[in-house]
């Protein structure tokens, strides 16, 4: 669907993107991660044709953006970091305007805009001026404009910024639904969001693509990093861990309830499943396991390790 071929971008003498190459062949959600200034927005701007690459090319469905920019642009929807909205227009007027800009046939504009307003839950504010909307609603208008024309590829820069928790859930579910037959590329600083909805992640560091993998390759959620609460005092249970769970790293997290202790246990090996071992150890020592759930910090760990340059492979 979309392929980046050795994309480089210089701002003056500063190298912003260094030979970035990847391809996305099927409908999925791709997370784009990187620290501030890593080149995420530059990469998105190049993929959407807003900026041109110093070298390399972006190819969508076999069509190069440098040869046929309008054809490529018609297949890509874009939400930049700041929603590009006209605040003197109402939500409905603005989305109709975007639909016409994107070449939606005149007779379909009204229907298409009404559908998008319904999908993005903007019905209550459709006739209000954009300047009178909250930041969260303006962000949703930004997402809605990107979806107008049902582009094959949706590129969203920090789509959930400014949304309240219930709106975040709604937008995530909307994106998950849209990604069933489209490609969505999301940049976000919220790593848990990336780990929850993305199928694949790309990590950029100082303009270089340093990691490109599937989420399932990156993390092993729920198996090797576990939080537990047991009805035992700290010293008593620490002895038990040292004897029976010797291959686990442990971290005391305090006493969540009187007479109890909270722990985070992490397997030494990345692939090891320690859930059964924890359960049998607690039961074997005639204690009660009051809480047990996975702690998924894999993506944060990987992100920090990679961007700190500790293991670039």
């Amino acid at each position: 669907m979309i392929e980046l071929q050795n994309v480089c971008k210089y701002y003056g003498n500063k190298l912003a993107l260094d030979n970035v190459s990847f391809s996305i062949d099927n409908a999925s959600i791709i997370g784009l991660l990187g620290k501030n200034g890593a080149g995420k927005s530059t990469l998105m701007n190049i993929m959407t044709g807003y900026l041109s690459a110093t070298a390399g090319d972006v190819v969508v469905d076999g069509v190069s953006i440098s040869n046929a920019p309008q054809e490529v642009k018609s297949k890509v929807g874009y939400l930049p970091e700041k929603p590009p909205v006209y605040d003197t227009m109402s939500v409905y007027e603005f989305l109709c305007y975007v639909a016409r800009l994107k070449g939606v046939p005149s007779r379909s504009v009204s229907l298409e805009v009404s559908n998008i307003i319904e999908q993005t839950a903007l019905g209550d504010v459709a006739r209000r001026l954009i300047r009178n909307l909250s930041k969260g609603y303006q962000q949703r208008v930004g997402i809605a404009q990107a979806m107008v024309g049902e582009p094959e590829i949706l590129i969203l820069d920090e789509p959930t910024v400014g949304l309240d928790p219930s709106q975040v859930v709604e937008i995530r579910s909307l994106l998950t639904e849209y990604a069933k037959d489209h490609v969505i590329i999301i940049s976000s600083h919220i790593l848990t969001e990336i780990s929850e909805i993305c199928d694949r992640i790309l990590i950029l560091n100082e303009g270089e693509l340093i990691k490109d993998c599937r989420m399932s390759d990156l993390s092993n959620p729920g198996k090797n990093h576990i939080f537990i609460r047991v009805d035992a005092e700290r010293t008593h249970f620490e002895d038990i861990i040292q004897k029976s769970l010797a291959n686990c790293r442990y971290d005391y997290k305090g006493a969540g309830e009187p007479g109890c202790s909270d722990w985070e246990l992490t397997a030494e090996s990345h692939e090891e499943d320690i859930r059964k071992k924890i359960f049998s150890t607690v039961m074997g020592n005639k204690l009660n396991l009051l809480q047990m759930f996975p702690v998924n910090t894999e993506i944060e760990d990987t992100f920090l390790d990679l961007t700190a340059g500790r293991h670039l492979n």
């Binding site: 807003y50 309008q70 874009y78 930049p80 970091e81 590009p84 909205v85």
Partner: peptide, 13 residues
């Protein structure tokens, strides 16, 4: 206002 990002990324020339 960065609205040129909208104008320059649609199929309109």
């Amino acid at each position: 206002t960065k609205r040129d990002q909208l104008l320059m990324t649609t199929r309109t020339t």
